[in-house]
Simulated scan of single mutants.
Amino acid sequence: MLYNSLVKPLLFQLEAEQAHDLTNQFAQKASKSSLLQSLAKAIYNFQSPRLCQNIWGLKFRNPLGLAAGFDKNGKVPEIMQALGFGFVEIGSITGNPSTGNPKPRMFRLPQDRALINRMGLNNDGAKTVVKRLKNKKLSIPLGVNIAKTHDPKVLGDLAIRDYVHSFQEAKKVADYITVNISCPNTTEGKTFEDPAALEELLSALNIRDDARLVPTLVKVSSDLNHDQLLALLDVCEDHRVHGYVACNTSSQRENLTTSPSEIKRIGRGGLSGSPIAAKSIRIIGWISDATKGQKPIIGVGGIDSFSTALNMMLAGADLLQVYSGLIYEGPGLIKSINRQLLGQLKELNVDSIHQLVTASG
């Protein structure tokens, strides 16, 4: 309530990236303060043994995670843990540091409860971020999202080596790694969503043959059609990836209430938030069908309510991530969804999220 009545109106007076930076600065202070973490825990943290899941040998205390993009540099996972998240994913991190694209590069679409961003993978670089994460003491799983350095000169073999460098660094601290093959916010547009390029990348990462490997997931675009997705899944399954993150932001501008002139003024970038939820749910369903429900899926893209979260889980998502929804609903969203999930379990008289999906289906 406090967020919607007081904090959000103040933040929405600022440009989107200014508000993000201000929020991040406060989160950094809170991550260093045991008092603020205790306060956040008292207000927002909601847990129940029924919401726990063991996936990839990791214990997720609830299915709600922080999506990559909010904490690009691994500076605030402690306060996210205190706020009640079941896991956090930091990044994307890249082989080399990058300042990203010129500003302005983040825009709100309040009528659509959405964002458009073309941040351009701004981050401190894999080595620096991993060094920072080594000092973090977390009791929830930590995911690290890796992508290609935002530099048009990093192409071909250099691009592969860039990913491998980030991958080797991330392995030092990550409980799982997400390989982001679909970030649309770079100069070159899409990266490794060509099956042949993906084959080359996954071969270099050596996921299939390294038994000691950190669980490795592939994050796909929300703009794929069924055939394109199946072609990528064939490659991924051949390399025995451990799961999927669906989906990344969209380059398309569908289902928007915001005026076309405003959309044109904003220009290119990845659309996130409520308008892409249906696409994410559809792609989650396609992945679940193609893998016969055997591979864990993290559902992301447009979760701003319990009903969207539930629909993603019914489509096949085992875990969920939020980011844009936090901007419109505040940190209470996590508690609200987890509380309603538990209510649903009790209503159906089942003991776990896996049983919830079976019972609801």
Rank of each mutant, 00 (worst) to 15 (best):
357 V>H: 06
194 D>Y: 01
124 D>Q: 15
101 N>P: 09
30 A>I: 04
315 A>R: 03
347 E>A: 15
42 A>T: 13
263 I>W: 11
137 K>A: 14
293 G>K: 02
54 N>Q: 09
102 P>N: 12
100 G>S: 13
262 E>G: 00
72 K>N: 12
114 A>V: 12
206 N>F: 00
193 E>T: 02
94 T>F: 14
310 L>H: 09
293 G>W: 07
340 Q>A: 12
162 D>Q: 03
19 A>C: 04
82 A>D: 11
29 K>Q: 10
258 T>H: 11
235 V>L: 08
274 S>W: 05
170 A>C: 04
64 L>H: 10
10 L>C: 14
239 H>A: 09
34 S>H: 10
98 S>E: 10
195 P>D: 05
222 S>Y: 01
167 F>W: 00
89 E>A: 06
303 I>E: 01
321 Q>C: 03
357 V>M: 13
63 P>I: 08
311 N>M: 04
134 K>R: 14
344 Q>I: 00
15 E>N: 13
199 E>T: 09
274 S>R: 13
249 T>C: 10
324 S>F: 00
183 C>F: 06
105 R>Y: 14
58 L>K: 11
11 L>Q: 10
173 V>E: 08
80 M>I: 13
123 N>S: 15
159 A>Q: 01
115 L>I: 15
217 L>S: 02
237 E>A: 06
279 K>D: 13
131 K>V: 02
28 Q>E: 13
73 N>V: 13
243 G>L: 05
97 P>E: 11
307 S>R: 07
310 L>A: 08
161 R>D: 08
238 D>K: 13
23 T>D: 00
51 L>N: 06
175 D>F: 05
146 I>G: 03
27 A>Q: 05
269 G>R: 08
28 Q>V: 14
238 D>F: 12
317 A>W: 00
339 R>M: 14
207 I>D: 01
331 P>L: 11
350 V>I: 13
191 T>D: 15
309 A>R: 02
319 L>V: 00
55 I>Q: 02
150 H>M: 02
3 Y>N: 14
303 I>H: 03
35 L>Q: 06
90 I>E: 06
174 A>G: 03
188 E>I: 06
15 E>K: 15
219 K>N: 03
193 E>R: 02
118 R>F: 09
225 N>T: 03
182 S>R: 02
284 I>L: 06
343 G>A: 14
112 D>C: 10
27 A>I: 11
142 L>F: 10
33 S>F: 11
162 D>A: 01
202 L>D: 05
211 A>P: 05
219 K>A: 04
247 C>R: 03
165 H>D: 03
176 Y>T: 01
335 K>R: 15
141 P>Q: 04
13 Q>V: 05
228 Q>L: 12
244 Y>I: 02
89 E>M: 09
176 Y>S: 00
353 I>H: 04
144 V>A: 04
269 G>H: 11
149 T>P: 08
138 L>V: 04
60 F>L: 07
167 F>I: 00
25 Q>A: 14
221 S>P: 03
44 Y>S: 11
36 L>V: 06
115 L>E: 10
261 S>R: 14
17 E>G: 07
225 N>A: 09
159 A>I: 01
190 K>Q: 14
154 V>Q: 01
313 M>G: 01
290 A>C: 02
62 N>M: 10
309 A>G: 08
259 S>M: 12
183 C>R: 04
264 K>T: 15
348 L>E: 15
360 S>C: 10
341 L>P: 05
254 E>A: 12
189 G>T: 13
199 E>M: 04
169 E>V: 01
